[in-house]
Design a binder for these strands. Sequence first.
DNA 1: ATTCAAGGCGCG
DNA 2: AAAGCGCGCCTTGAAT
Length: 317
Amino acid sequence: MLAELALDYPLPKVILEHRGLSKLKSTYTDKLPQMINPLSGRVHTSYHQAVTATGRLSSTDPNLQNIPVRNDEGRRIRQAFIAARGNRIVAADYSQIELRIMAHLSQDKGLLDAFAHGEDIHRATASEVFGVALDKVSGEQRRSAKAINFGLIYGMSAFGLSRQLNISAGEAKKYMDLYFERYPGVLRYMENTRQQAAEKGYVETLDGRRLWLPDIKSSNAMRRKAAERAAINAPMQGTAADIIKRAMIAVDDWLEQQNNDAVKMIMQVHDELVFEINADVIDSASQQIRTLMEGSMQLDVPLLVEIGVGDNWDQAH
DNA sequence: ATTCAAGGCGCG
DNA sequence: AAAGCGCGCCTTGAAT
């Protein structure tokens, strides 16, 4: 609301800027220093393994899974997370893991192919939906395709897409129809998921974690639709959680076996593992981390891990 | 002084 | 009438 007004008037823009800075100050700049443990000189989060509906971890006191990253002011907070002398921060992120899981679960030919060939998935989607060659996709088209891909993971409707892209409902519906025409396996997967959720009352991840959906047969359409969106999202979000949990166990086993104290796994942020690693072993350790994470589960598409190194957490991205 | 809900917003 | 999944924390205002 304010964001729309901010496009045309200075006051709402200033209010939004104030809110953003005020959020950074109250939640991070003022709070994190208070939470430094005097014995270690560090902040220590608590991870909770039985909180979320999908199988993700959650993080509290402080939450280290929502440290700013999306703009420059916020990233200054992230730059305060630094490695001890002689060490570096290494961040290892799964690339597009939920879309890869969607490709695997749906067995959609086009999606499987795109990932098999290592294509930029949003560009590939734009190429299909807008009917242009891969190298002729405009920035605008790629942005739209990205919104469609994310929307699909969340069970978004044409209306939601129209809001997201600021286009008419009809235009949005056209995009989605075109998408499902190009990726019919995805459409079939969405329909099957809704149907199975209704039949069984739950959906599950590749490792068999179940999300029960008591509202899936509700006579209240709003609640039923919400349950359907959760049903569509949970197998993807939850399987991603299965995969990174397996990876964390594999990494821990590796470090344990060789009494490796040059590598410390210090944070998990849903599709990312953060390490503090002795500078002398960065390359070999990174290689092993990549191997363990990418091999955590065997899907019909490759899993890809992007690794960054830096003196602080921001640089490691 | 503490608890709760709502609005808002940080992240994947 | 609502409309995009999953979290946790801050502020505000009201209730206990």
